[in-house]
Design a binder for these strands. Structure first.
Length: 971
DNA sequence: TGAGCGACCTAT
DNA sequence: TTAGATAGGTCGCTCA
């Protein structure tokens, strides 16, 4: 399952198709485009390299690789000496974690508990000069709240603390850290629960500070179970904010957001000058008290990004024929690495570590090893020397890193697995099960690498893009119109066992696989967009890759709540009943040869929450209205019967957060318009996108029943208002735009979904439709509470409405004379569970119908395709659905096939089953890849029969589809 | 044969 | 030890 998603075919055994080792001469082709590109880098670099007295493309014997003389670019720029009493230290923080340290050593004079182990926050970052920083932040301890029992006074604090402390101690199964104090402090503080409106009355809460983050959960549990202290009877306490990650707790309290700039004012921090004091590989290592650091909001100059080092790498291993490479048996033969500074366009380090000799490649450095152990050891040392802030690659998280770690363990390369920035912390492989409704169950591996952000491009793509195929090849083609170097997996071992020319060919391939992720990262602006998301939502960069959506809202909610002394209860998660969602207006199906105007509510759900002040803090629980003596004009009743106080009584937190997000987005967009620097433009665009996504995820958070703070009253009220609004919009439009009101025709809303209505205004031109549409949007908006706003968005002309959530049309928005595109929603052309033939056929038919206005042509085309199909004139690689084959193959073939095929299914490649003999050929020709790989699966006669019938089903499906299409349109 | 259900993917 | 929401179309499969 965890093999790299590449274009190469599966290792399904069967030697008939796999290529035997070829003579070296066959590989001596003209240099690929990529090689030319590499050599160009070399030209650019020549000048610099002459200065360094070192040509980049020499084959270097293993020696002192890491000396500054030999490889001057590997190291970070020299760090000038720092005097903490006269120099301020400023850096962009990119990773943040904590560890337990004994406070007295090695840093005296820092705030915090002076006994036992204390949590210390560790921030890693980079200065403007590109120097690395490790900053230990002292004195911040985890805490949570419980409501104080009635009549509680400060006199009881000591007793409470003592009882809780001993209860927690007693609860510990083992006490290997020899903790004697678990509860550091208990204080009385005035707070109010965020959940529900209760007359703005704050009450006494106990703020319980614990010695370590992991003691919070047992303390919370014990308090819930019931604690007895002083004169009070045993009683249970509800915990507040006991489920907040320690990092988030710190960041919220110290106003630090992900990837922000941190300033340590002179005189307020200590530099670890002696090497023995430092624990990290960073150039500057400092200690600071948590209240002494200054966090700069990402505005103006502080929006900039430090020159981060991004390392991309790829490994090759020599598998045995037909067997998936196993790290305890199969060697790592090459590791290609490219290092680029964030913001630059070319990698400044291009290196391949090879096992055995390898001919030189212009533009890159080749390091040859005779011992695999030495190769691994040296690469780890290379990584530590280059000291990247971000590590990327394709499927490195689930393949390359695990393979390297396991291989190093098998070969007993004991110094290998120290890949983080903290000395002595071993990088360990762990299995991680991640499950969500959105993504399904996903089994992942994780490797700890303190201070470095692992940015696996595959994971990013899986998260952010819906693609038909996720192979590096397909992805590169899709985004860059570029492909991998053509080397099949099956021949990698042969290339390795050939000569230095064949190994060179492999090295070029490997280099490109390291280069493509860098290019993709740049093209998709991943680093910038993720940083902006971290800044907007306030979570560490790593959370965005390893965690879900909820943490982002929690972080924002906590920040806003803290300002008003509101605290968040810990809600028991129990899956309740689903609530009603949005309305989809029954479509008047058909083909419309007149313009159809589309009106949309912009940011519907956020604007509903703002307009009606829907929030945890404004929710009136049953009976509260009377108890609090609220007048009817003080609150509203939502369509679902829930009550919320108006903003005149109290302004909700969520509306406030949303207003901030949306106004920040407006600002970013206006700045974007003014900005001329392309790099700053990218940052601003990433920012406005992050702000939009953030605003939209607030509603989902309130409705997430298995979540940190679900509130169905809010979410069902939101959808309730939405349902009411779309109905009302339909009625308003249809009542005003009528013949009796002097318009050309009676308008009809022919379809609508959630926040949009499609209106047939009865006018003949796109222009008229746009004009009336704009006017209608404005007029309808005036019937709703701001900031709810209906906007004219586009005109479809012509428009084909097939069903709910299935339609197509020519899209006019910018100009009334020419259409922007053909827009298809929900139809086979945009779905990924149909084979390309279906998608292509439907697409062509739709073009005939909508663009050429030639329905007969569409029918003719469909008939032609069916006829071609029946007469075997079609490349069947377009036809058969992988999943079906997979299922069948699973039944009849061994485990090996199961694994390979399951992986293949995820990558959604379509391939052929032709000809259908007892040895069925699996042709892994991606639609994007011209050169196919073939492998053979042996199938029983029964399964062949099954496959045949499957094809019949496919034909049948075609006929059904086409006939229904035609039927729907014209009969 | 058709109803009912689950898997999958999309719309918003 | 962690997870945004619901609506809804289409197909394959099972079972009466």
């Amino acid at each position: 399952m965890d093999y790299k998603r590449r274009n190469g075919g599966p290792f399904l055994g069967g030697a008939s198709q796999s290529k035997r080792g070829k003579p070296a001469g066959e590989w001596e082709e003209s240099p690929s485009h990529f090689e030319e590109e590499l050599s160009m880098f070399d030209d650019v670099d020549m000048e610099a390299e002459e200065m360094e007295g070192q040509a980049g493309h020499d084959v270097i014997p293993v020696g002192d690789l890491f000396s500054a003389d030999l490889n001057p670019r590997w190291r970070r720029p020299h760090a000038s000496s720092l005097d903490s009493s006269s120099n301020t230290l400023v850096f962009q923080q990119i990773d943040l974690d904590y560890y337990l340290g004994s406070y007295q050593r090695p840093v005296p004079g820092m705030p915090g508990q002076s006994q036992g182990k204390v949590p210390i926050i560790r921030m890693f970052g980079v200065t403007d000069n590109g120097n690395s920083v490790c900053c230990h932040v002292h004195g911040f301890a985890p805490y949570f709240y419980v409501p104080a029992p009635s009549g509680f006074t400060a006199d009881y604090l000591g007793e409470f603390k003592k009882e809780l402390n001993s209860a927690v101690l007693k609860d510990m199964r083992s006490n290997k850290d020899n903790i004697s104090i678990t509860v550091l402090a208990v204080d009385i503080t005035r707070k109010e629960s965020i959940y529900g409106y209760h007359g703005k009355r704050s009450q006494d809460f106990l703020r319980i500070t614990m010695a370590m983050p992991r003691l919070i959960a047992p303390a919370k549990r014990l308090l819930e179970q019931g604690l007895k202290f002083g004169p009070y009877p045993i009683q249970s306490y509800q915990a507040y904010e006991a489920n907040i990650d320690f990092e988030i707790r710190f960041m919220v309290d110290s106003d630090v957001v992900g990837c922000c700039w941190i300033e340590l004012p002179k005189g307020n921090y200590r530099l670890r000058e002696e090497k023995s004091m430092g624990v990290s590989l960073c150039q500057y290592e400092v200690d600071v008290g948590w209240t002494d650091l200054i966090s700069h909001p990402a505005e103006g100059d502080w929006q900039r990004i430090a020159p981060l080092r991004v390392l991309s790498f790829d490994i090759e291993c020599a598998g045995r024929k037909g067997i998936f490479p196993e790290p305890d048996k199969d060697p790592v033969i090459q590791i290609a690495s490219m290092v680029q500074r964030q913001g630059e366009t070319e990698p400044f380090i291009r290196t391949v570590f090879t096992l055995q000799s390898c001919a030189s490649i212009v533009g890159s450095q080749i390091l040859c090893f005779t011992q695999e152990k030495q190769l691994l050891q040296s690469w780890a040392e290379f990584l530590r020397t280059v000291d990247p802030d971000i590590i990327t690659g394709y499927n490195i998280q689930n393949f390359d890193f695990p393979y390297l770690l396991n291989r190093a363990a098998a070969l007993k390369v004991n110094l290998f697995p120290y890949l983080g920035r903290v000395r002595g912390i071993k990088s360990v492989l762990r299995d991680l099960n991640f499950q969500s409704k959105q993504m399904g169950r996903r089994e992942n591996k994780t490797i700890n690498m303190e201070g470095r952000v692992q940015f696996d491009l595959l994971q990013v793509l899986l998260r952010d893009y819906k693609l038909r195929s996720y192979t590096l090849n397909a992805v590169s083609f899709h985004f860059l119109q570029e492909q991998k170097e053509d080397v099949q997996h099956s021949i990698i071992t042969d290339l390795q066992n050939g000569n230095e020319q064949t190994r060179r060919r492999l090295a070029v391939y490997c280099l490109k696989d390291a280069y493509l992720p860098l290019r993709l990262l740049q093209k998709l602006m991943c680093v910038i967009n993720y940083m902006e998301m971290a800044r907007v939502t306030g979570v560490p960069l790593t959370y965005l890759l390893s965690r879900g959506q909820q943490i982002k809202v929690v972080s924002q909610l906590l920040r806003q709540a803290m300002k008003q002394d509101l605290v968040m209860p810990v809600i028991k998660t129990e899956g309740g009943e689903d609530y009603t969602g949005a309305t989809v207006i029954e479509p008047e199906k058909g083909y419309y040869s007149v313009p159809i105007a589309t009106l949309d509510f912009s940011s519907l759900y956020p604007s509903i929450m703002m307009a009606h002040n829907l929030c945890y803090t404004t929710l009136l629980q049953k009976g509260s209205a009377e108890k609090l003596g609220l007048a009817p004009e003080d609150f509203i009743k939502t369509p679902t019967g829930d009550l919320f106080v108006k903003s005149s009584v109290r302004k909700g937190l969520l509306p406030e957060i949303l207003e901030n997000l949306l106004s920040a987005r407006k600002r970013a967009k206006t700045e974007l318009k003014k900005e001329t620097d392309p790099f700053k433009k990218q940052v601003l665009d990433g920012r406005q996108l992050a702000l939009k996504v953030s605003a939209n995820s607030v509603y989902g958070f309130t409705g997430a029943q298995v979540g940190k703070l679900p509130c169905l009253e809010i979410s069902q009220s939101v959808t309730g208002f939405g349902r009411q609004m779309i109905e009302q919009t339909k009625q308003l439009v249809e009542s005003r735009y009528t013949i009796s009101n002097g318009y050309q025709a009676d308008a009809r809303v022919i379809y609508g979904d959630t926040d949009s209505v499609m209106v047939k205004l009865g006018v003949g031109t796109v222009r008229e439709s746009m004009d009336i549409g704009k006017e209608a949007a404005e007029w309808v908006s005036s019937h709703f509470t701001p900031p709810i706003k209906l906007e004219f968005e586009k005109v479809y002309y012509p428009y084909l409405l097939i069903n709910k959530k299935r339609y197509a049309g020519l899209y006019f928005s910018s100009c009334a004379d020419t259409h922007d595109k053909m827009d298809c929603k929900g139809i086979e052309t945009v779905r990924r569970d149909n084979c390309p033939l279906v998608a292509n056929l439907i697409n062509t038919c739709l073009q005939r119908i909508l663009i050429d206005r030639d329905p007969q042509g569409a029918v003719a085309h469909a008939k032609e395709v069916i006829s071609d199909l029946l007469c075997n004139r079609i490349d069947i690689s377009q036809l058969v659905i992988t999943k079906e084959l997979t299922r069948t193959a699973q039944e009849y073939s061994g485990k090996q096939a199961h694994v390979e095929l399951a992986e293949r299914t995820q990558s959604m490649c379509w391939r052929t089953t032709f000809p259908l003999t007892h040895s069925t050929t699996w042709n892994s020709s991606c639609p994007n890849h011209s050169r196919a790989t073939t492998h053979v699966v042996r199938l029983s006669p029964v399964s062949v029969a099954k496959l045949c019938s499957r094809q019949m089903v496919c034909f049948h499906y075609f006929k059904v589809f086409i006939s229904t299409l035609i039927f729907r349109l014209y009969l």
